[in-house]
Amino acid sequence: MNEASSPQNDLPLVRRLEAVGFRAWPAASVVYDGSWQVRLTGGHPSKRLNCIVPLDPSDHRDMATRLEKARKRFEDYGRPLVVRETPLAPPKLIDHLNAAGWRAFETVDVLTVNLTELELPDTLDHLPSHDIGRFCDASLAIDGEDAALKPALAEILSSIKPTSGFFIKENPQEGAAAVALCVQDNDLAGIISFAVAKAHRREGLGTEILSSALRWARISGARSAWLQVVSTNEPALALYRRFGFRKAYEYRYWRQESRA
């Protein structure tokens, strides 16, 4: 595939997936500086909820001043300043970050699949729950995160406007084994917070719960599904490839390593 036809340059698709991504994982505070979206969430450390996301490749005026203004806002929230670089980010901004001592520290792949052509089980092994508290407990336990994050996570989940289904696989003796959140936004369905407990990996639970979430989304009217995965997570990428997911684009997180 040549550069001109690369999905990374399909900016209308990137814009659409970014928009549904914002709605699927809403930040507590969203303000705009020009076309830069400034996302902050005081109670939760998720990078997606605490970053600057430039949304226009041509919007690179007064970069240093705007970054410093944002830094002060992030400091008010007790957060380090992070920039999320998608294909919509101005190339001149990325050049500026490089020159100013910033470094990219994580790359995330955004994957999509056509649900209308996907082979899925005829029945749902798991019905979606609407119990936010139960999903929070399961998700935090599987990820090994502090239970004190439950109120913040519950607030995020309660703020999701599109139709959502919480999929939870639990073992009566051992507790939560796998979780997935499916957010259906018109004809697009997003898979968020998908995780399988370490003790239950390679048992087919990921396939089981992802199949249920995608089938529910298709029954509910979604025609395509999307998800985001760290580019170095090869086991997850292998699972998604088996389902037919393919890379639409990637984004990177940047931070300034030293201000000395």
Rank of each mutant, 00 (worst) to 15 (best):
T116I: 11
V113L: 05
Y240A: 00
D137F: 08
L127W: 14
L118F: 02
S193V: 13
L188I: 15
H126D: 12
E203A: 15
E85A: 13
S129I: 11
R241C: 12
R201L: 03
P87R: 00
R84I: 10
T207M: 08
V83L: 01
D76C: 11
E203N: 14
L205G: 00
P91Q: 02
G78I: 01
S58N: 13
R241L: 07
Y77F: 09
V83I: 06
A189T: 05
L157D: 10
A89F: 05
A195I: 04
R71D: 03
G190Y: 03
K69Q: 07
L93C: 01
A70Y: 02
R218D: 12
A178N: 11
R259T: 02
L124M: 01
H44E: 07
W216K: 14
P91Y: 02
K69I: 10
V20K: 02
D56W: 08
R66W: 00
Y32I: 11
L13T: 13
N114K: 03
A28C: 09
G21H: 00
K72I: 12
N233D: 15
A99P: 05
E170H: 08
S220M: 12
T116N: 10
P128E: 05
V179T: 15
L124V: 02
W102D: 00
V108F: 10
T112L: 09
G42P: 02
K198N: 13
T107G: 11
A70P: 03
P7F: 01
D33P: 05
S224H: 08
L118G: 04
P87K: 04
A217Q: 00
H60Q: 12
T232G: 06
L205W: 06
K150F: 01
I132M: 03
L115K: 01
Q8T: 08
H126A: 02
G244R: 07
Q173G: 12
I142A: 07
L127A: 14
V108Y: 06
R84A: 05
V113Y: 14
L153G: 01
Y77R: 02
N9F: 14
E257R: 08
N171C: 13
A104C: 08
R218P: 07
E208L: 08
G144K: 01
A213F: 15
C182K: 04
S231L: 07
R252M: 06
A248Y: 06
R61L: 13
Q256W: 00
L140Q: 04
E155H: 11
L120H: 06
A238D: 15
F135V: 07
Y32R: 14
A176D: 04
W226S: 07
L120K: 03
D125H: 10
L67N: 00
N114D: 15
G34A: 00
L239S: 05
A180Y: 13
Q256K: 02
I168N: 09
V38T: 09
F194A: 08
G144A: 05
L40K: 01
Q184P: 04
L120D: 04
E106G: 10
G21V: 04
N9D: 12
E145H: 10
A70C: 05
A189E: 06
A138D: 12
A99Y: 07
P151R: 00
L124A: 03
G101K: 00
L49N: 02
L157H: 12
